[in-house]
Design a binder for these strands. Sequence first.
DNA 1: AAGAAGTCCTGGGCGC
DNA 2: TGCGCCCAGGACTTCT
Length: 298
Amino acid sequence: MPELPEVETVRRTLRPVLLGRRFEKVEVRLPKLIRGSPLEIVKLNHDRICGLERRAKILIIRLESGRSLLIHLKMTGQLIHVQRDGKLLTGGHPIPGGEVGLPNRTTQAIFHLDDGSALFFNDVRKFAYLRLHHHRELQALFTLLGPEPLLPSFTFAVFRSAVARRLKSQTKDVLLDQSVIAGLGNIYADEVNFAARIHPRRLVRSLSEEELRAIYGAIKRILRFAVQKRGTTFRHFRDGRGAQGGMRAYLKVYGRSGQPCVRCKTLIVREKLGSRSAHYCPRCQTLTKPKWAGTLSV
DNA sequence: AAGAAGTCCTGGGCGC
DNA sequence: TGCGCCCAGGACTTCT
């Protein structure tokens, strides 16, 4: 489940090894992973990589020709760089969980680069995709996405007007809606609600100004911290060097059902909410609006 | 028109 | 040990 921190971690680990490299040959083992016109991907050959960017959970490999390769890892996608000698870029030190044995049966595409190294695209569940676009198309494409929560432009006013479109929805649904805020997934949405002490089923219109500010602050704080910890690995997530993330040990609710809340020792609950599971503390995440609070005025 | 539900996909965990 | 069932979830599509 690569969310914003995981995709950002992949970007940061791949950037130094991919910048300036040319694609020599692209092997596609699972044709359906190429969205749009599959034959287009051949055009990658001999194109030089001039940038690695990210928008929401989408990784963008910018090419000198004016095209961009968009990659969405969805749930189990991995993008791992392997050196010419077949070794991971470990800097001489073993990486925990870095033994990936590439290529393996989950390898759906291999990008051979001009220095003899290769970029392996793995995906167990086959939901991830690649798509080739022209740079100029991206802006229009990304207008469907909400604000980037780690940019300075993501102010409280921006957040407030974004959620105001969804007053009748449950808080967690809104946090997961990529057109409201771009980059949160199930793990960090649960963590944000816990930090802000908001029950995942609380309706947006019942949130007080203070509660909304608490959610806003938690989004920025938690995502920044998760990027610093190089993302969360439950099973599949690996960074661009094949290493696991270090954020799991810091999660307070996700994956902790049946364990005591770090604040009040009440057991963390896992509950079906729509088609997702929500993890929360039934005691310190309030389902009803505190008496002292007003409603969100917009 | 917003919101809910169905869809894709496979490994792993569970009960029996 | 083995079989079958169910679950995990991002984002798109389809339905109400």
